Amino acid sequence: MARVSQEHLDARRRQILDGATRCFARNGFHATSMQDVLKEVDLSAGAVYRYFSGKEELIGAIVTEVLDEVRDAFEEGARQSPPPPPDVLVGWVMNKMLNLKPELTPEGVSIHPRLIIQVWGETLRNPELAAVINEGYAKVSGVWEKVVEAYQEAGMMRDDVSPESLARTMIALTQGFLAQMALFGPIPVETLQDGLRGLMSMGEPGTRS
């Protein structure tokens, strides 16, 4: 019997993850069964269970992948010296993330924000998933802290700002924007960038015309 190539195995795993992501984004984790996933990817149970032991493992794999994508995107943007200002960097990363999974829900919303909202809810009842989220958050926060340090070294940001504080603020900002997209429908990323530029332009009273 011919050996199955690694490329084939990787492609099949990708097929399963993408199909499960679409199912979870449409109907949520609890309303989606493994039978729904099997139907979505058009594979037998044996083919799917070769890669994932069940729904919980699928969810963990999807969450880990999304968090790694976020971290990698920020790391890529932050490699510039100095990094681009926050509005440019956040906009670039957000657009890249949304384009990684361009599928839309029936309501016209990108599946990525909707999936992320469901992950947050699931985290409250799933300690294993909470551990994955915490690890991913720490990685993304670490990247943002390096970006802040680079801003400070380049004289782009006051040096009495705590890198950890700003990292938490920027993560909260992007989380809130994704929540708005999931709850209220499509919002241009430029809206977030314009708001950031407005905040960044503030000075002491009377210093702006």
Rank of each mutant, 00 (worst) to 15 (best):
A2S: 13
S5E: 12
E7N: 09
E7F: 05
D10I: 12
R14G: 05
Q15H: 07
L17T: 01
G19Q: 10
R22F: 02
A25K: 03
R26H: 14
A31T: 06
S33M: 07
M34C: 04
D36F: 03
L38W: 09
V41N: 05
V41L: 04
D42W: 00
L43S: 13
S44Q: 08
G46S: 15
A47F: 05
V48D: 01
V48T: 00
V48L: 08
Y49H: 13
Y51I: 02
F52W: 09
G54S: 04
K55M: 00
E57D: 08
L58M: 12
I59E: 04
A61S: 08
I62Y: 12
I62H: 07
V63H: 01
E69M: 13
E69Q: 15
V70Q: 09
R71C: 11
R71F: 02
D72S: 13
D72Y: 01
A78W: 10
P83K: 06
P85A: 12
P86S: 05
V90N: 07
G91Y: 01
W92M: 14
W92T: 15
V93G: 08
V93W: 04
K96E: 14
K96I: 00
L98D: 09
N99M: 06
K101L: 11
E103R: 08
T105L: 15
T105R: 12
P106V: 04
E107F: 10
E107V: 05
V109A: 04
H112R: 01
Q118H: 02
V119S: 08
W120S: 10
T123A: 14
R125K: 14
N126R: 06
E128P: 03
A130L: 09
A131L: 09
A131E: 05
A131H: 01
A131C: 02
G136V: 08
Y137N: 02
G142D: 08
G142N: 07
V143Q: 02
E145S: 14
V147L: 05
E149Y: 02
E149A: 06
Y151L: 03
E153R: 13
G155R: 00
M157A: 06
R158N: 12
D159I: 09
V161N: 09
S162L: 13
T169V: 11
M170C: 00
M170W: 03
A172H: 04
L173S: 14
T174S: 15
F177H: 12
A179E: 15
L183Y: 10
F184S: 08
P186G: 07
I187V: 14
V189Q: 11
E190F: 01
T191W: 14
L192V: 06
D194F: 15
G195N: 11
R197W: 04
R197E: 10
G198E: 11
G198K: 13
L199H: 02
G203D: 11
T207M: 08
S209T: 15
